[in-house]
Amino acid sequence: MKTHWIDRGVAFFIAGVCIWLYVLARAFPMGGDLFPRFALAVIIVLCAMMFVQTFPGKSKSSAESAPVIQRRDIARPYLLFGLCLLYVLLMVLIGYLAGSVLTALLLLPALGAKSKPVYLMITAGVILFIYLFFSRFLMVQLPVGLMFV
């Protein structure tokens, strides 16, 4: 079963990182190391448990986590996440308004939106509303962008 291998991989990965963090935590000043070390030890034990549970026959829980194969766009979430990171970069560089509009114009086609009113509503309507509401009403100073400073 494929999911078992994913679970095993995750358990190994988390346990590995936590062992490394545990070594780091030993350098913390007295008292400050107690809790992180406790949490890390618990995590490592739980990873072991998760690993053991992946062996079939023992539990049903891992079997039920097998994703139902449906017609979905598996890649799209990663694309969306990438665009969100780009959005952060754009906001830093060209400011909130321009960055949001650009991101929205990349995001909408990526999500498969086709109708023009939707583009207009999101870019002009929502972004402008957020901008005015946050900067004028809530007094949040939205990023202006490094290119303008």
Binding site: L80, C84, Y87, V88, M91, Y96, S100, A104, L107, L108, L111, G112, A113, V118, M121, I122, V126, I127, I130, F134, L138, V140, Q141, L142, P143
Partner: peptide, 21 residues
């Protein structure tokens, strides 16, 4: 969803930002 996703993303981002600028 293709309409809601951008809106939720926009609000989540600006909301997080406005917490501590």
């Amino acid at each position: 969803n293709y309409m809601l996703i951008p809106v939720i993303v926009l609000f989540s981002v600006v909301g997080s930002y406005s917490l501590d600028h």
